[in-house]
Design a protein around this nucleic acid. Structure first.
Lengths: 346, 346
DNA sequence: TTGTAGGCGTTATCAT
DNA sequence: ATGATAACGCCTACAA
């Protein structure tokens, strides 16, 4: 089916002007005579006409839009990123083309190609690893590219993210200094992020010659994984006194399981999550979480891209952002203070 | 910044053919001579070239893409819808343009205009209410439009959704027949969906001359609302024996609060959610929920649109889909059987 | 204030 | 198997 859609010329014919006048009506109403304006306005209203933006994209080879690629829509971490990117872009007259990859770099490759073929002016990627072809295409395209959330080893252009290893190191160290000795790390899916965090955790334990207890679930992160990993740890008869979770889903699962088993949080067991999502407050006690500044990341990524577009130049820029602690009841007051302080120093 | 991107002509110049041959290479590689094909392939590989799709959209006034508008990325109900729509569309050679409205019909109006201006071939809306201008534009555009999730009173074209009132009526009735007498409804934000459900709940109670206990939170649905509403109900000294929640977030909040207060679920209190999201399994006991077939809805919407595109004709079609019960431990076995049976009869 | 001419980069169509 | 030409619908630039 080829939809027969009206064009500027059709409106112009009805009104009795040329399409140029109708074009002006849309782009700068002040530039057409009041009487003409009214006539055009009436016809537009009656016909529900919407001008075709495609020819303009073609002649300017710019769509005034920015592509945003996220791994998954079922991970709430990214909904804040989407909102930040979209708001910031719209404030600057840009729109967003949104795509997801299902955590698959081959899919990411296809999405990037698609965005480029639609003539986006810039691209934001939220996973740090890409296929070689993706990287090559992005470099050759000479368009602003921002990699966000994690900072890759060798950024393409702009990079704005969290130093997961340092953050987890600092948090682990704080808990040790507050007296916790048997600290476990609960991870899911062995991606880079989880492994960076785990490395920071391990490093802190090693410095104090403490044993590490790492539990990983092969399963994608879901709310029930925390539950499962805690059961596993209990079966192992580990007398853990703190659990650092790779994300809030797992941590809330742990808290629910603690309530079930009658484990006292935070007295007997400290629990901390990662990201600071809104459902932290669902658990009793409320989950303490390492809050990642997702809004700030999105905001800065878009502004960096727009700056490059304005200045017509690309330059490598790497920025780390600071995390904070979402306060709750799953750490002691003292621990919350210590963790907050440590995070503020990174 | 105007990005200077290579075009077919540039590739053609290097290879020593015309742009038409390069165009053929992309659209039907078999139609160029093997030797030429190789030469072009080599240049493409080295340059990371991606062809511009915009001119093709322009000349065909079709982008082979479908617009999908959802209210929010932070509502996990829609991530399944997105996946279903995207998969089905891609299987048919269509891509998806995804936008969100923040539950605001004025924003929806702008999104629809944007999608139409990008020459999408069809649009999927996931909220049943629109501004008059949105409706007019969609009708005048003569493109396939699918309204999903809820079925509007007066559908524009295709409608595929859930009969929320009937579903909630059936569930409430089942609980009454299983012996529950003091059944509350926990709602959030007074949108149509919540009110439809509430109406079904009320109708069932009225038939048995039972008192209704409706608690509404003005706040957006979050995980902590269930907690708050349950505390409120307890303060009111209502001796409730069942709670029907407007969604799973609230229901999981209720379960967590029950665990905290030592309320026995399901013996003393039955709890049921709505949507059957994956985090139902986070709670202890696992939440029973009215599972909406989101994948099926997305799948059917896309297929209906593509059918209309192929046949080049629009026709009103309204379909209701069936819900099922996500089994868990927040209803008794008997109640789960009864609810399942009732849902299968709608 | 309004009109005219030409071009954006691809593909359909016809020609070689 | 490949080339030449025209057309898609808008906007820039210039003209009246």
């Amino acid at each position: 089916m080829t939809i027969k859609r009206p064009k500027l010329q059709d409106i112009a014919n009805i009104v009795g002007v040329t399409k140029m006048t109708v074009s002006r009506y849309f782009n700068d109403p002040q530039s057409v005579a009041p009487k003409t304006r009214e006539k055009i306005s009436k016809v537009i209203d009656e016909s529900g006409f919407i001008p075709n933006k495609v020819p303009a994209i073609m002649s300017k080879s710019s769509s005034r839009s920015i592509g945003l690629i996220i791994p998954s829509f079922s991970n709430l971490v990214f909904s804040d990123v989407i909102d930040a990117v979209e708001e910031t872009a719209e404030d600057n007259g840009y729109s967003i083309l949104l795509m997801h990859t299902g955590y698959d770099i081959k899919m990411e490759e296809a999405r990037v190609a698609s965005l480029v073929s639609y003539q986006v002016d810039g691209i934001i990627l939220s996973e740090p690893e890409h296929t070689p072809l993706t990287t090559k295409r992005l470099i050759k395209s000479e368009m602003p590219v921002a990699e966000i959330m994690s900072v890759p080893d060798n950024p393409i252009n702009i990079a704005i993210g969290i130093n997961h290893e340092e953050v987890t190191y600092a948090v682990t160290r704080s808990l040790i200094e507050c007296g916790r000795r048997n600290i476990a790390y609960f991870g899911v899916r062995l991606d880079r992020r989880t492994m960076d965090r785990q490395r920071g955790y391990k490093r802190a334990l090693d410095e104090f010659s403490l044993t590490s207890f790492t539990y990983n679930s092969a399963v994608h992160s879901t709310f029930s994984v925390g539950n499962e990993l805690l059961s596993q740890a209990l079966e192992d008869k580990q007398k853990l006194d703190a659990i650092i979770c790779t994300n809030d889903d797992v941590a809330v699962g742990v808290l629910i399981a603690c309530q079930h088993y009658g484990i006292k949080v935070p007295e007997d067991l400290a629990v901390i999550g990662y990201n600071g999502l809104s459902f932290c407050s669902a658990a009793i006690p409320k989950l303490c979480s390492i809050c990642t500044p997702r809004y700030e990341i999105g905001y800065r990524a878009v502004n960096a891209i727009i700056k490059e577009l304005k200045e017509n130049s690309l330059s490598k820029k790497v920025d780390f952002v600071q995390c904070s602690l979402t306060r709750g009841g799953s750490l002691t007051q003292e621990e919350q203070k210590a963790v907050s302080l440590a995070l503020s120093k990174i």
